[in-house]
Design a protein around this nucleic acid. Structure first.
Lengths: 173, 173
DNA sequence: CTAAGTGCAAAAAGTTTGCACTTGG
DNA sequence: CCAAGTGCAAACTTTTTGCACTTAG
């Protein structure tokens, strides 16, 4: 059960860290070929733009928006238009590589959720602190529910909202 | 474990059913007084507009958008401006009466999630069919996770994505 | 080759804001 | 009373589209 505590969501920010662990690389490759396969199956094409987007998305560890991906891409000198990013993200969702996330009154958020690195969020409604958690039991139950209704599970969104320890004290601000 | 199968999300539609079961009425009252209390605690006011919005929101059984609420309100002859709805929904979220939901590329969705009538969703990515499910085990685990990190749980979002039985057949459309 | 994809700029959605007017406490 | 809330219209932000051009298969 891995845990990470972030201070507010780290939006945007051209964080040019393209270095990956060997382990992660394998996952990216797997994700990439899955995307390519899904596209092929739908008579769609594997383009350089889609590859760039995929690569970037795989690096992300937290929620991101379409706009952020576009900016990040351009920040790295990769010329991919905003429209293309907007057109590609839904494809990644369909392919089960990315999941939509709950947006708190702003734009839509997505998150890379392919492979083992999956986790869910516990969000403080007051200060915005996010705790990532992972519980095997949830994953198993989810599979069970999906199966019960004849669904093939592709992804999920699971966010818990509440007040963190610090904020519980000064409740009625 | 209650179950309901909807055919696509029933967006908008001025469905003027204001009739409530006695049981439901109690819940609405409880929700209303909670909202009033939270407002008071923050030095905010209990206005007719907020009451109208609350009442409407309590009737909703599925996801809705700010716009829908505004239209519905106006359809019932209640003059509440769109801005006010946009300004009120976040308050309802803070009060723990409403939870944000995952939006699939459109506007932001919310859902009334106060009281016992709570349920989660299983959504087909291809045809949009939604199955509502409720599993006690999830609720309990969620409380456990929140407690583990010192959070007081207010609400949650839990949506499963996949392909329904019908859509699994014609996968590569 | 030619259907699918892309970029651009324009349009459409969706959401927020400033300001003068109301109103709850 | 007066700080908080509201409506309206304008401003903004985010997302979608039409179209001419490019390109993967």
């Amino acid at each position: 059960m891995g845990v990470t505590v972030l201070d507010k969501v780290p939006r945007s920010g051209h964080s040019s860290y393209m270095r990956l662990s060997v382990n992660k690389q394998g996952e990216v490759q797997q994700a990439t070929s899955r995307f390519a396969a899904v596209l092929r199956a739908h008579g769609q094409r594997w383009t350089g733009e889609r590859e760039s987007i995929m690569a970037l998305v795989c690096q992300r560890t937290g929620p991101f928006t379409a706009d952020e991906i576009a900016d990040d891409l351009n920040g790295r000198g990769l010329a991919v238009s905003r429209s293309t990013v907007y057109r590609t993200l839904p494809l990644l969702v369909e392919a089960g590589l990315v999941s939509p996330r709950v947006a708190s009154g702003e734009e839509h958020h997505f998150e890379y959720t392919f492979g083992s690195s999956h986790h869910d969020h516990l969000v403080c409604q007051r200060c915005g602190k996010i705790v990532e958690f992972q519980f095997e039991a949830f994953e198993m139950l989810q599979e069970a529910v999906a199966a019960k209704y004849g669904f093939e599970l592709v992804g999920h969104v699971h966010e818990l909202f509440g007040l963190c320890e610090a904020c519980r004290g000064q409740k009625s601000s």
